[in-house]
Amino acid sequence: MFEARLAQSAILKKVLEAVKDLLTEATFECSDSGIQVQAMDNAHVSLVSLNLRSDGFDKYRCDRNLSMGMNIGTMTKILRCASSEDTVTLRAVDSPDNIIFIFESQNKEKLAEYEMKLINMDLEHLGIPETMYSCVVKMPSQEFARICRDLSQFGEAITIACSKEGIKFSAAGDYGNANVKLAQTADSDKEEEAVLIDMQEPVKLTFACRYLNSFVKATPLCAQVKLSMSSDVPLVCEYQIGEIGHIRYYLAPKIDD
């Protein structure tokens, strides 16, 4: 028996919105410690790694490990049927063909159940090597989303250059070029508005806008985003999900031909 309950479906709704652009199908691996998803997009350029810890749920029970293949499009449609304040419960038997989503309104007067067929998927798990990153930048997630959106108008790629002074995003295309520099905040009263740079060595890397603009769909999950970069390795773009877990996106850089 697997059962996981969240007091408010808003978190799960946001998680689905944050992955649906990149993934069509994904395996949800459920164990005593929580729910994990690790899946690449079809082009094998980016990877989504989602971790929801069991202690972050209001109720969590997982008698035996389960790997449930889910269609992300269908799951997104089902989550859109829930109000943000509804309680959501995921339920499955031990060798499931289906998963049930149960939405209960706050006043308990409305109870909705949606059953979704599971799909068989080949499990291809990637081992992500431990990496010491040359630059780790924490910045407001809305600012990052804004910069990705704005610079996407100029080119199909954004170059991120990080040094002790700050972080610079730039894009160039047929119509011109653009760059946005953010300095490290000296002393921000509000943690959420801070730009913090932890730099060992300066880095300069180029990434496709299309993927960055998919990652920033996670913006509603967290006020801050963490970007970890080293030369010639994938970018890690991380959003904390409240007290329950995190979503990490990995993106292969664009390299010189």
Binding site: H125, Y250, A252
Partner: peptide, 14 residues
């Protein structure tokens, strides 16, 4: 000219 690199080059399939 830049080309898009692939993730599987960096990560090991386990």
């Amino acid at each position: 000219l830049t080309i898009q690199d692939n993730l599987t080059k960096y990560f090991i399939v386990v």
